[in-house]
Design a protein around this nucleic acid. Sequence first.
DNA 1: TATTCTGCTATACGATCGTATAGTATTGAT
DNA 2: ATCAATACTATACGATCGTATAGCAGAATA
Lengths: 202, 202
Amino acid sequence: MKKTVGVSPKVNSDLTAKARIRNAAFALYANYGEDATSMRAIAEAAGVTVGLVVHHFRTKDGLREAIEQHIVDLFFGAIEQVPLEGTTAEIAAARDEAVADMLSDNPAVVGYLRRALLDPMGHRGRILEMLTDLAAKQVATLRNVGVASKAHRDSSQVIGVMIRQLGQLFLQPMVDSMWNQLAGPNAAEDDKPLLVVKVQES
Amino acid sequence: MKKTVGVSPKVNSDLTAKARIRNAAFALYANYGEDATSMRAIAEAAGVTVGLVVHHFRTKDGLREAIEQHIVDLFFGAIEQVPLEGTTAEIAAARDEAVADMLSDNPAVVGYLRRALLDPMGHRGRILEMLTDLAAKQVATLRNVGVASKAHRDSSQVIGVMIRQLGQLFLQPMVDSMWNQLAGPNAAEDDKPLLVVKVQES
DNA sequence: TATTCTGCTATACGATCGTATAGTATTGAT
DNA sequence: ATCAATACTATACGATCGTATAGCAGAATA
């Protein structure tokens, strides 16, 4: 089985049916949630039948595992491609930017994670743990290469990285909804208030 | 395995069956989401049969409407009880505190709103619109009584109020999960980083 | 060419869902 | 005491869910 780690921006028609199914499910999960998405809806969106979904992914749990592994691969691929040169701060900034680019290229990632991470009881996957591990390894790598900032403890730094990158994206839909309701749909977009999310040492 | 979520039976015992059903559904929705909560689970949690749930609320939509009206009533009741005396800033601060107290007394409100507000596509209710209206009226009242701050436009101020009060509560579970994973379950609790959520004029 | 394997469709099964309906018990007004 | 409305239970129906199974077409292997 070949594994595509790098992101190939190919259109759906060039993909295998298995990848098309995963992508269809990914998009539906991000928009409507796993519970509200039936296997039949996934099959229809991918242009196949229900049986083929089961054939490739066994169960709905297996489908979610494939999606979450795909998300981890996207994060890893984004981080991996920035070279380890420059100061620690420069590397960290370059990684932040690479992840931000990946997120804006893959809005389904944000939608999926928003549901998964903010629904601690309902979500049955392990995506938060996997991404936290990845971020922890990212911080550890920086520490090995140069001198990581000692101003923050490692844990705080990992949490800070993830919250800064995801928190604003998670809350933005709420701001957008309220802005539309209060200011009307055709108000000047650049009057919209800016969301700021950060963590502080206690 | 029977797990009671949220409401203590002591409180429940002297309520009408209709209120018990609403409270049971409210707690279950907050913890597991509406889609993952069946009418039969609600009935069992309330100690009645499915038929009675339908008798009192007609449909599942009707049940959600009752819950969301209850939430609006809780917000209104919290705001209503602070007297209109002192400076505008003092009134606003007292209202913020009253709402914060209400939220800590009713954790199901936070859980329910977190699901509803962060799921703009999936949610079928109107709770965000209702609460935004309420907050807008709150700002308007302050403007009538005294002199509301002109430093921010009304819309920004409304959004600021709601984001400050809810944003931190929404993201906190994510911080908690990561903190537990990284620092271990028995780490010093006061080392945990603090979440800061705010909005800025653009 | 014969056989096996893989990608894929079609259909069906049991569980669970929201809801409708019919009937019983309890209350409240006259 | 009567009677109607309300509170509540029991059961059933149709739809939809995840998944199991059987079979077919075409490529691969020998």
